[in-house]
Amino acid sequence: MDEIRLINIRESILADNQGLAEQIRADLSGKGIFMLNLMASPGAGKTSLIIETLRRMKNNYRFSVIEGDIESQVDSEKVAKEGVGAVQLRTGGACHLDAPMVKAGLDTVNLDIVDAVIIENIGNLVCPADFDLGENRKAMILSVPEGDDKVLKYPLMFSVCDALVINKIDYLESSNFSLETLETHLHRLNPGIRVFKTSCTTGEGLDEWCSWLGQEIERAALPDEG
């Protein structure tokens, strides 16, 4: 019988996706464009946050939105109503976006007239955490009704994000959600993460969020930064 040979590889299982993501990042960086990968559970308020962000920032920056929500035109129509270009990705029922899907979406956008791209990822706290899309920053939303224990249940998602938006903060008083518990668990996994407390209903915290996003967009517009 033939002898078994062991071939050492030591490569990321997602090397292919990673390679394309790096290429997307380099292409966008060359054009001074910022890209945000926004992730959350279904119903956490991704579309609402995007709409409120566009309302506050669209006069200062030219946005494009890539909508990954499963087989629906509803979200991209809401974005288009704000006068911002939106691309609806056809994901065929997938549970996450990957770099090839985002590349296909970006290819339909005239990037010469865009400062920032926001990707609305598919509503899911598991799979999107694994896939680099070529973004500059990853942000996630956790809404108060989801509970303060989600860091323990979805540790990878909370560990890969640069910013956490705690949305529906107007529900805080009527719930047993503890910000202190959440932040203790969160900083154990991800000490550098930025935390914003927002309500898309009352407008609370949205200016802080937009201010951070604006700084990130400005940073990406500088030569040789990203």
């Binding site: 078994i4 040979r5 071939i7 990321s12 990878l156 560990s159 154990r188």
Partner: peptide
């Protein structure tokens, strides 16, 4: 101390394959 951070557990690597 409750102030601790994760240093390993995020790996996602294909180490090797055995072939003939």
């Amino acid at each position: 101390s409750p102030s601790c951070r994760v240093t390993a557990g995020n790996e996602f690597i294909i180490e090797s394959i055995g072939v003939i």
